[in-house]
């Protein structure tokens, strides 16, 4: 707690609502706390939770920007709360909302897991191959540059921020969004995967897939992992348009 009087007070306003509880009404609650050096929204929310309001719900797991649990809307921008430093906000006022487009659980908590699992299943997001792997044998060689390219796309943490930043998704529930298109591009590039572009067309060749994207670029501009969504969606679109 502040030994130093120079620490400023910040105001954090949180959307409160529990859809499970019939008596609960959506409301905004404001908490005032003292900002400490290097404070992140993770630290701030844990402080609110443990010191002011034990009933506040939110999701953190890794608190290091790698698991994708803590996405929320921070002053209008979907981002990872654990990676957001409070000092960024000059007026010291921060409003937190749960991520839109996902099923709301309570307060800042939403259900991303089931959506992402469905998406992974629908897009068959695993290697398809006829080859049998003998685990005792030396693995199949892969060009280092190709492996790296696949890795680049494999970095997605399913945080859902691209979906929450996509107006197309907001309007059209069944749109797979950048996360899905990126996933398909990842397998399209993977030399282990023997699927053809025709096969991928079956997965994303429609208005819920790549042709539904209107290039709004909210995904590209908010993705916390800086995935090359702009280029990879364009890449998939080019591939899919060429399918006979």
């Amino acid at each position: 707690m502040p030994e130093n009087e120079n620490y400023r007070e910040i105001e954090i306003t949180v959307f409160r609502y529990n859809p499970q509880d019939k008596t609960s009404k959506p409301e905004y609650q404001t908490y005032t706390l003292t900002e400490t050096p290097g404070m992140t929204l993770y630290i701030a929310l844990i402080q609110i939770w443990s010191k002011m309001d034990h009933d506040l719900s939110f999701d953190f797991v890794c608190r290091a920007g790698i698991c994708g649990s803590c996405s929320m809307v921070v002053n209008g921008k979907p981002r990872l709360a654990c990676k957001t430093r409070t000092s960024e906000f000059e007026d010291g006022k921060i409003t937190l909302l749960p991520l839109p487009v996902f099923k709301h659980i309570k307060d800042l908590s939403v259900d991303t897991g089931n959506w992402m699992n469905e998406m992974s299943k629908n897009l068959e997001s695993w290697i398809h191959t006829q080859e049998e792997t003998d685990l005792s044998r030396i693995e199949k060689p892969v060009d280092p540059a190709v492996a790296e390219e696949v890795f680049e796309l494999d970095r997605c943490i399913e945080c859902g921020i691209c979906l929450a930043s996509c107006s197309t998704k907001v309007m059209r529930e069944d749109f797979v969004g950048a996360v899905g298109l990126n996933r398909v591009a990842r397998f399209q590039l993977d030399p282990h995967d023997q699927r053809t572009d025709e096969d991928f067309y079956e997965l994303v060749g429609d208005e819920n897939g790549v042709f539904g994207c209107m290039s709004l670029m909210g995904c590209e501009d908010h993705c916390p992992k800086n995935l090359p969504l702009q280029t990879k969606i364009a890449y998939m679109r080019r591939k899919m348009v060429k399918v006979k």
């Binding site: 809307v73 209008g76 839109p100 930043s165 107006s167 290039s215 709004l216 670029m217």
Partner: peptide
């Protein structure tokens, strides 16, 4: 409505352009 509200919340340049 959903688009308009989302656009207002996000205030993101390319989304506004649309």
């Amino acid at each position: 409505r959903r688009y308009i509200e989302h656009k207002a919340l996000l205030n993101h340049n390319d989304t506004n352009l649309w």
